[in-house]
Simulated scan of single mutants.
Amino acid sequence: MRKWILMIIVIGMLGWAVYDFIDSNRKSADQVKSEDDVQLTEETKLGEENEEADEPVIGLEVGNKAPDFQLQTLSGDTVKLSDFRGNRVMINFWATWCPPCRAEMPDMERFHQDKDVVILAVNLTDTEPSLEDIEKFSDEYKLTFPILLDENLDVATLYMIQPIPTTYMVDSNGIIGFRAFGAMNYDLMVQEFEKME
C-alpha cells in the first residue's frame, strides 16, 4: 500500500511539473507578445512624435517657418508668401522716409537682377505721407521687384518689426535662414542667399 501511495505522489509531482512547465511557457510567450505590443506601440508613438517634430514651428527665429501673409502690391496684384514655396525669398520691411532703407535699395535692385531670388519689399504704408511718395520712390530707384503695401501694418506687427529696414531670408521650404536688423549691402545679401537651399 505504501508503494501505491508513493507512486501516486511521484506521478502527481511529475504531472504538476509538466503542467507548470507548459503553463510557464505559455505565460512566457504571452509576456513576450505583450512586450512586443508595448514596443510597437512605443515605436508608433515615437514615429508620430518625430513626424510632428519634423514639422517646423512657425515663428520669427532662424530655423522657424516664416509666418504666411498676403498683401496687395503697388501695381494692384495680390501676393502671398506661401505662393513662392520652392523659391528663395527675401522679405524686406522698409519706408520711403527711412535713410538706411534708401541706402540699401540700389543693392537690393542689383541683387534682384543678379540672382534667382524673389524680393518682397513690404512698405510700411501706414507711416507714409501718401501712396504717390511710394510710387515716386519706386520710379526714382528703378525698382523691378514687387512693392507690397502693408496699409494697416498687419504684417509688420506679425513680424514684430522694430527697426527698419528689417530683412528676412527665407529658403525654398519657407524656413527662415537669416534675418538682419538694419541695412544690408549687396555682398551680405549674396552671402546669405547662397547659404540657403
Rank of each mutant, 00 (worst) to 15 (best):
R2I: 08
K3A: 15
L6M: 06
I8W: 10
V10W: 14
A17V: 12
V18L: 09
D20R: 01
I22P: 03
D23C: 01
D23E: 14
N25F: 07
R26G: 10
K27V: 11
S28Y: 13
S28V: 04
A29W: 10
D30L: 14
K33N: 14
S34A: 13
Q39M: 15
Q39F: 13
Q39T: 13
E42P: 00
E43L: 14
K45G: 01
G47H: 04
E49M: 11
N50P: 01
E51R: 04
A53N: 13
V57L: 15
K65L: 15
A66T: 00
A66H: 01
A66F: 04
Q72M: 15
Q72V: 07
S75K: 06
S75Q: 13
L81F: 04
D83M: 11
R88G: 12
M90K: 05
M90I: 14
I91V: 15
N92D: 15
W94T: 05
A95L: 13
T96Y: 08
C98Y: 04
A103T: 06
A103S: 10
D107A: 08
D107L: 05
E109D: 06
E109N: 10
R110L: 15
D114I: 04
K115I: 09
I119W: 02
A121T: 02
N123I: 03
L124R: 00
L124N: 06
P129S: 07
L131Q: 10
E132V: 01
D133W: 08
D133E: 15
F137V: 09
F137R: 02
D139C: 05
E140C: 10
E140G: 05
E140P: 02
K142P: 08
T144D: 13
I147F: 10
I147R: 03
L149Q: 10
T157L: 09
L158Q: 15
M160Q: 09
P165Q: 02
T166V: 02
M169H: 05
M169C: 06
D171C: 03
I176H: 01
G177H: 03
M184I: 04
D187H: 03
V190P: 13
